[in-house]
Amino acid sequence: MKFSDKFEKRFTEMLAHYPTPRSVLVPTLLYAQDEVGYLSDEVIAELANRLSLTELDVRNVISYYSMLTTKPRGKFNVQVCTNIACMLRGGEELMEHCEQKLGIGNKGTTADGVFTLEEVECIGACSWAPAVQVNYDFHENLTPAKLDKVLDECRKRIG
Protein backbone atom coordinates (compact mmCIF):
# COMPACT_ATOMS: atom_id res chain seq x y z
CA MET A 1 0.00 0.00 0.00
CA LYS A 2 1.55 3.24 -1.12
CA PHE A 3 0.61 6.72 0.00
CA SER A 4 2.14 9.96 -1.22
CA ASP A 5 5.36 11.33 0.28
CA LYS A 6 3.35 14.19 1.71
CA PHE A 7 1.09 11.72 3.49
CA GLU A 8 4.05 9.80 4.90
CA LYS A 9 5.77 12.94 6.08
CA ARG A 10 2.66 14.16 7.83
CA PHE A 11 2.00 10.74 9.31
CA THR A 12 5.48 10.50 10.84
CA GLU A 13 5.25 14.06 12.07
CA MET A 14 1.88 13.49 13.71
CA LEU A 15 3.01 10.36 15.53
CA ALA A 16 5.43 12.53 17.48
CA HIS A 17 2.61 14.80 18.67
CA TYR A 18 0.88 12.34 20.95
CA PRO A 19 1.75 9.94 23.76
CA THR A 20 -0.27 7.18 22.03
CA PRO A 21 0.04 6.33 18.30
CA ARG A 22 -3.68 5.68 17.97
CA SER A 23 -4.32 9.41 18.42
CA VAL A 24 -3.38 10.04 14.80
CA LEU A 25 -6.21 7.80 13.61
CA VAL A 26 -9.07 10.19 12.85
CA PRO A 27 -7.16 12.83 10.88
CA THR A 28 -5.08 10.14 9.17
CA LEU A 29 -8.16 8.29 7.98
CA LEU A 30 -9.42 11.47 6.36
CA TYR A 31 -6.09 12.18 4.69
CA ALA A 32 -5.93 8.60 3.42
CA GLN A 33 -9.45 8.87 2.09
CA ASP A 34 -8.54 12.07 0.27
CA GLU A 35 -5.75 10.23 -1.54
CA VAL A 36 -7.46 6.93 -2.31
CA GLY A 37 -11.00 8.24 -2.75
CA TYR A 38 -12.47 6.05 -0.02
CA LEU A 39 -11.36 3.84 2.83
CA SER A 40 -10.72 0.60 1.02
CA ASP A 41 -10.06 -2.72 2.74
CA GLU A 42 -6.44 -2.22 1.87
CA VAL A 43 -6.24 1.20 3.52
CA ILE A 44 -7.96 -0.12 6.63
CA ALA A 45 -5.59 -3.08 6.89
CA GLU A 46 -2.58 -0.85 6.37
CA LEU A 47 -3.53 1.72 9.01
CA ALA A 48 -4.59 -0.96 11.49
CA ASN A 49 -1.22 -2.59 11.03
CA ARG A 50 0.73 0.64 11.40
CA LEU A 51 -1.08 1.62 14.59
CA SER A 52 -1.24 -1.88 16.10
CA LEU A 53 -5.02 -1.85 16.07
CA THR A 54 -7.41 -4.52 14.87
CA GLU A 55 -9.21 -3.84 11.61
CA LEU A 56 -12.44 -3.98 13.57
CA ASP A 57 -11.16 -1.19 15.80
CA VAL A 58 -10.48 0.95 12.76
CA ARG A 59 -13.84 0.16 11.16
CA ASN A 60 -15.54 0.97 14.42
CA VAL A 61 -14.03 4.46 14.34
CA ILE A 62 -14.78 4.94 10.63
CA SER A 63 -18.47 4.20 11.11
CA TYR A 64 -18.74 6.96 13.70
CA TYR A 65 -17.53 9.88 11.59
CA SER A 66 -19.84 11.20 8.89
CA MET A 67 -17.10 12.32 6.49
CA LEU A 68 -15.47 8.89 6.37
CA THR A 69 -16.69 6.39 3.83
CA THR A 70 -15.81 2.83 2.84
CA LYS A 71 -17.53 3.22 -0.52
CA PRO A 72 -16.10 4.97 -3.57
CA ARG A 73 -17.61 8.37 -4.35
CA GLY A 74 -17.69 10.65 -7.36
CA LYS A 75 -14.82 12.98 -8.07
CA PHE A 76 -16.80 15.87 -6.64
CA ASN A 77 -18.78 15.34 -3.49
CA VAL A 78 -21.57 17.93 -3.56
CA GLN A 79 -22.68 18.44 0.03
CA VAL A 80 -25.86 20.46 0.37
CA CYS A 81 -26.73 21.80 3.80
CA THR A 82 -30.44 21.65 4.59
CA ASN A 83 -30.10 22.40 8.28
CA ILE A 84 -32.09 25.24 9.87
CA ALA A 85 -30.29 28.38 8.70
CA CYS A 86 -29.95 27.03 5.16
CA MET A 87 -33.49 25.67 5.14
CA LEU A 88 -34.81 29.18 5.85
CA ARG A 89 -32.96 30.52 2.84
CA GLY A 90 -33.62 27.83 0.26
CA GLY A 91 -31.36 24.92 1.19
CA GLU A 92 -34.09 22.35 0.60
CA GLU A 93 -34.78 23.78 -2.84
CA LEU A 94 -31.07 23.61 -3.65
CA MET A 95 -31.06 19.95 -2.70
CA GLU A 96 -34.04 19.27 -4.96
CA HIS A 97 -32.41 21.24 -7.72
CA CYS A 98 -29.28 19.09 -7.46
CA GLU A 99 -31.31 15.90 -7.47
CA GLN A 100 -32.98 16.95 -10.69
CA LYS A 101 -29.94 18.35 -12.38
CA LEU A 102 -27.70 15.42 -11.54
CA GLY A 103 -30.44 12.81 -11.76
CA ILE A 104 -29.44 11.20 -8.48
CA GLY A 105 -30.73 11.14 -4.93
CA ASN A 106 -29.05 11.65 -1.58
CA LYS A 107 -25.75 9.71 -1.47
CA GLY A 108 -26.10 8.79 -5.12
CA THR A 109 -23.28 9.01 -7.67
CA THR A 110 -23.70 9.97 -11.33
CA ALA A 111 -23.11 7.16 -13.82
CA ASP A 112 -19.96 8.87 -15.11
CA GLY A 113 -18.55 8.94 -11.59
CA VAL A 114 -18.17 12.72 -11.60
CA PHE A 115 -20.60 13.77 -8.88
CA THR A 116 -21.83 12.37 -5.62
CA LEU A 117 -24.70 14.21 -3.96
CA GLU A 118 -25.01 14.34 -0.21
CA GLU A 119 -27.44 16.13 2.08
CA VAL A 120 -25.38 17.30 5.05
CA GLU A 121 -25.93 18.92 8.42
CA CYS A 122 -24.69 22.41 9.29
CA ILE A 123 -21.28 23.13 7.78
CA GLY A 124 -20.65 26.37 9.66
CA ALA A 125 -21.79 28.75 6.96
CA CYS A 126 -25.12 29.72 8.49
CA SER A 127 -24.67 33.48 8.15
CA TRP A 128 -23.94 32.96 4.45
CA ALA A 129 -26.75 30.50 3.80
CA PRO A 130 -27.67 28.62 1.79
CA ALA A 131 -24.34 26.88 1.54
CA VAL A 132 -22.88 23.91 -0.28
CA GLN A 133 -19.50 22.30 0.12
CA VAL A 134 -17.96 20.65 -2.93
CA ASN A 135 -15.21 18.45 -1.54
CA TYR A 136 -13.56 20.97 0.82
CA ASP A 137 -14.59 24.15 -1.00
CA PHE A 138 -17.32 26.33 0.45
CA HIS A 139 -19.89 27.96 -1.83
CA GLU A 140 -22.15 30.41 -0.06
CA ASN A 141 -25.16 32.69 -0.57
CA LEU A 142 -26.23 30.33 -3.33
CA THR A 143 -29.12 30.29 -5.75
CA PRO A 144 -29.86 27.38 -8.08
CA ALA A 145 -28.31 29.41 -10.93
CA LYS A 146 -25.13 30.08 -8.96
CA LEU A 147 -24.90 26.44 -8.01
CA ASP A 148 -25.27 25.42 -11.65
CA LYS A 149 -22.21 27.51 -12.41
CA VAL A 150 -20.25 25.79 -9.66
CA LEU A 151 -21.20 22.37 -10.99
CA ASP A 152 -20.41 23.35 -14.57
CA GLU A 153 -16.98 24.52 -13.43
CA CYS A 154 -16.39 21.11 -11.85
CA ARG A 155 -17.21 19.37 -15.10
CA LYS A 156 -14.90 21.68 -17.00
CA ARG A 157 -12.06 20.94 -14.62
CA ILE A 158 -12.05 17.27 -15.49
CA GLY A 159 -12.33 18.12 -19.19
Binding site: N83, I84, A85, E121, C122, G124, A125, C126, S127, W128
Partner: peptide, 11 residues
Protein backbone atom coordinates in the same frame (compact mmCIF):
# COMPACT_ATOMS: atom_id res chain seq x y z
CA UNK B 1 -15.36 21.48 16.37
CA UNK B 2 -17.94 24.23 15.76
CA UNK B 3 -20.97 22.25 14.61
CA UNK B 4 -23.99 23.61 16.44
CA UNK B 5 -26.45 24.63 13.71
CA UNK B 6 -26.59 28.40 13.52
CA UNK B 7 -22.96 28.81 14.60
CA UNK B 8 -20.21 30.00 12.27
CA UNK B 9 -17.97 32.27 14.31
CA UNK B 10 -14.91 30.21 15.28
CA UNK B 11 -14.44 29.80 11.57
Amino acid sequence: DESEPGTCKDR
